[in-house]
Design a protein around this nucleic acid. Structure first.
Lengths: 319, 319
DNA sequence: CTAACTATGACAATACCTGTCACTATCATA
DNA sequence: TATGATAGTGACAGGTATTGTCATAGTTAG
């Protein structure tokens, strides 16, 4: 095997195993240790951040940087990667924000002139709009770390105007419409609740808290277990039925909570039907009103009454 | 310069200039043509897709694939790139959909085991939710291509129940809340309008259409020139003033059209103020009603009347 | 103290790289 | 049709770079 090829192979090998000894590689490549030493030095000069420690249990290590072996990307793929990163630029808070940007810049800089031109041409021609919120989300990384690591956090959560301390074990985080949410097991409620991340006033690990539960099987992909839009509520349920016009169906498709309730007819109209918590009546009343003549509440009577009451109140303001 | 280094350099060089001759490179690297020929063959064996043509104006070319030179990515950066691509997975329609996925897979495959583990751990713990719409967006790539290339398209557009043929020159495309929009110069209206891409029933280049205008300076970054939410409307303007509660401000922040109109007070409340088209009164009435007690229309009188009329109508349905 | 590591230098053998030259093949274009 | 620009191949000699071996030294965990 030629030296050039060996160097490229070596590059990949040292990245695969982050820690290794010279002898190990020498055996693997069927060359002498001396050669491997020389090769490693050369790799270092080429930019691979190697670090070595002498002594027993010593050896070589690749530092936090990793060299990607040369990958054949099509031009389209390179552009796609660039725009995937570009798509997230409206997020003011993002776990990986920094890294995403620096990776994007590296990519851009390594690309040849004509691909750059294409990207420049395109980057003002395609966009993914997300509402820019004033809310602050300082704990996203921490929440994500706690979710992957199955750890318990003590948070100070502001709910309905009052702040409360709670122990939670995050399931994950998700962004929706410019806001970040965190489904988590709440030790206070003894169930999974969805928290709005901008209402988390503080968060941190707390040794004195309850022991972590095994929630590895619960993740964002199986959130049937989550409760409704607010994460609040009690156990008293009631059946709801709301008729929807064409536009009402479209509006509901944009709502996360609606998918289990939404039924669509062939002509584009549809209806919402299902059990809801009584404490959510106010929410649904407002939602139905927001759809104007595209939604008509049929059940339950309490919801009809709430809608009528709200409408009357609104009308009164304009008298 | 050692051969190994030259090969790496060569890799980058042939990617920079997609087309080149052997002599060119020989001069650039100060080696003989014979050596370059040998090097190029070796590069070919290493995976660089080279193609050559003999004769005058012949030369070497790199085929559509490009090799990225080895880039040092930190682990965090690699993860960030992965999740940028991951973030777009809820988009059923996406220009670059295929490429984004294949690039993501390549990335994933080249990463070492422990980074993969980290990604696997995380990918069900972070998400970017976008409403999944039933609407179809088959012309995104075409629209984008027309926007970057300053070309005129003939589209069949469904607006208010009726279909019309129009010549448009796209400015760009953007996704918002699960739907794709396309601001474009409309030759029918003689102005820039926003089209909903799922209502474009057909699109294609048309030689018989009007000549393209020079709209290179108009792009998504300077869309002040765009008209309101619907892209429809006439020239008669009227001043609007809507008082907003705390929640009303938050709701407005999520709307694209509101930013030039929205004013926020220190206490979190605010108001909408500005000139609007009379034809949009119905839209704003519905919007204000959707905010329930979080919005109170002050001006213009027509809007107040429209709100009252709509509210009365809604209330009537529940009598 | 020892074993397991890295680290460096010197040197000889040799494998590989390089340039040169000679030749062939293809193709655009004058 | 002739010509020049281009790729492509093979052979060969000279030279350089690569490699393995050996010697030696430094560091550190156990």
């Amino acid at each position: 095997m030629s030296k050039s090829k060996r160097l490229l192979d070596l590059m990949m090998t040292v990245n695969r195993k982050r820690k290794f000894t010279v002898k190990e590689l020498a055996d693997e490549f069927n060359v002498s240790s001396r050669t491997i030493l020389r090769d490693l030095q050369e790799l270092g000069e080429l930019g691979v951040p190697l670090y070595s420690e002498v002594g027993p249990h010593g050896g070589y290590q690749v530092l936090n940087e990793r060299i990607l072996p040369p990958i054949a990307f099509t031009e389209e793929e390179a552009v796609a990667i660039f725009f995937a990163s570009h798509a997230l630029r409206h997020y003011k808070y993002l776990p990986f924000k920094q890294e995403s940007l620096s990776a994007q810049h590296k990519f851009y800089n390594y690309m040849s002139g004509d691909v750059r031109d294409r990207i420049d041409e395109m980057k003002n021609r395609i966009d993914f709009l997300t509402p820019v919120r004033q809310a602050e989300f300082p704990y996203l990384s921490l929440l994500l770390e706690a979710a992957t690591g199955q750890k318990v956090l003590l948070i100070h959560y502001e709910s309905k105007g009052q702040g409360k301390e709670r122990w939670i074990q995050p399931v994950g985080i998700y962004a929706h419409n410019g806001l970040w949410y965190c489904p988590a097991y709440c030790f206070l409620r003894g169930d999974i609740r969805v928290f709005r991340c901008d209402r988390i006033r503080s968060a941190g690990y707390d040794e004195s808290g309850p022991a972590a539960r095994d929630l590895r099987h619960v993740h964002l992909g199986n959130k049937e277990g989550y409760s409704s839009h607010t994460g609040q509520g009690d156990e008293s349920l009631v059946r709801m039925w709301v008729e929807l016009g064409h536009g009402g169906v479209q509006a509901c498709e944009a709502e996360l909570w609606s998918s289990p309730l939404l039924h669509i007819r062939a002509d584009g109209t549809g209806w919402l039907e299902g059990e809801i918590q009584k404490s959510d009546l106010g929410f649904f009343a407002r939602f139905a009103i927001g759809l104007c003549d595209e939604a008509t509440v049929q059940e339950p009577p309490e919801l009809v009454a709430e809608v009528k009451r709200t409408l009357t109140g609104m009308l009164a303001r304009y008298k």
